[in-house]
Amino acid sequence: MKSLGNIRRSFAPWADPSAKPFISVRGVTKKFGNFTAVDDLSLNIYHREFFALLGASGCGKSTLLRMLAGFEQPTSGEIVLDGQDLAGTPPYRRPVNMMFQSYALFPHMTVEKNIAFGLRQEGMAKDQIADRVAQMLKMVKLEQFASRKPTQLSGGQRQRVALARSLAKQPKVLLLDEPLGALDKKLREETQFELMDLQQSLGLTFVVVTHDQEEAMTMADRIAVMSHGKVVQVATPAEIYEAPNCRFVAGFIGDVNILDGNVVAVQPGIVEVAVDSGFRLRTATNETPSQGSRVGFAVRPEKLRVSPIAPENASVNAVAGEIWDIAYLGDMTVFHVKLKSGQVVKASSLNAVRTVEEPFAYDQEVWVSFDDNAGVLLKD
């Protein structure tokens, strides 16, 4: 069985034609005056899915999340959750809860009272509130901090309090708006895995908004890449990375080299392109572009090989250049190679050993090469 990347879990209801979406966004548009924040957007999210809305600032992802929460109403279209059309349903009547980037904790209340706040507002019995709060504190491992105020906690601890408060009312869907943005890099990475484990153990549907590509790739079962109020591609992290459907997605997710050229040969499963940079590439593909048409070829830096000598077959998928820049990052080294055409391509190499007998140097002449299945054709 071949797969585009490793699979985190064998959970893929979107691949089952008989599976019913838990959340359906159908032709939703949201306008603020003359500005269209969300533009005729449709997507399906499934029960127990960890779903990410990913895009740059202003792409409409937070507006869509606020419409799911009920803080904004669609200008047109509908949002259906578990068979219920949410039109006109106020936020406090929706089976969802939202965790904000700022955490929005009450500074004058203890951790315990912050978590209990929503339960008290609903009129839950005191003994039930006490049991639920104890359960939430244990879940986020903050039992010993129950009597502290938010100002007495670290950023990571405040994030856990906000998460516990959001889950205390046992919503069907948890909405997370840039939930890890205030944490430092190391703590953010640790918390990503904690959120994943928590989501799977609770069996809830999580929808997270983020502009951090690595965060979305780490946590989500699927990612919706958004731009200018529209969904550009919805797919698993591996599919988004290895098989982007357009230039925007290829360039937005991770590092990429895009080589433009003209199609010179088309065979079943194979296309050859005369690259503008002065060499010929051959790629395995299911696409069948017409001969002579303009295409782009997206190839990730780690798929390129840099060597001091020409490969055995340098007539295809190989090009000469010189080392323009070198960045040693510890786990890998990144090379910027300037081709004779002037285009600079980026290649990366894993530092699997501690020492290098013949390290590359600036201005050194090298060859860059790649396999037939290293990249993907882009038609736009």
Rank of each mutant, 00 (worst) to 15 (best):
S10G: 06
C59K: 01
F335A: 00
F335P: 00
P21F: 05
F50C: 04
Y92H: 15
Y328I: 04
V266I: 11
L202S: 10
L86T: 11
A12I: 09
Q199F: 10
Q192E: 02
I240A: 04
K230W: 10
N245L: 04
P17H: 09
K172I: 09
G296Y: 09
V299R: 00
N97M: 13
W324L: 10
L137S: 08
E215P: 06
G118K: 07
Q364C: 02
V161W: 08
V209Q: 07
R93P: 08
A361I: 03
Q135T: 09
E214I: 01
L142N: 09
E112S: 10
G269C: 10
Q152M: 14
T285F: 11
V306N: 00
L198T: 01
T288I: 14
E112H: 11
T89R: 13
E272C: 13
R300F: 12
N286T: 14
E287R: 11
H47E: 09
V80L: 14
M217R: 13
D127C: 03
H47C: 05
G229N: 00
D39R: 01
K30G: 00
V344A: 12
A238P: 08
K340P: 00
S349M: 11
W367C: 04
A164F: 03
K172R: 12
N373A: 10
F248G: 06
D255R: 07
L153N: 05
V334Y: 01
L378G: 04
V353G: 04
Q135F: 06
D40S: 12
V353P: 11
S42M: 11
T29K: 03
S102L: 04
F297K: 02
Q192C: 13
G292M: 15
I79E: 06
V376Y: 01
G123A: 08
K338T: 06
V337R: 01
G254Y: 04
L304N: 02
M98F: 04
L65G: 09
A182I: 04
V256D: 03
A164E: 09
V316K: 07
T63D: 06
M109R: 12
L105A: 14
L176E: 08
A216M: 11
G269L: 11
F117P: 13
A284W: 10
G58M: 08
K126F: 03
V264G: 12
E72Q: 10
A12P: 15
A216N: 03
M332C: 13
A318G: 09
R294Q: 11
Y328Q: 09
G261K: 08
K138D: 12
M217W: 00
V140H: 04
N97W: 03
I115D: 07
D184K: 11
G251W: 00
L137Y: 05
V173M: 06
D131N: 08
Q233L: 13
L180H: 00
R48V: 12
F297C: 15
V345W: 01
D255I: 04
D212M: 14
K20C: 07
V316Y: 02
F117Q: 06
G292Q: 10
F370A: 02
T218R: 03
W324T: 13
Q200G: 15
T110S: 09
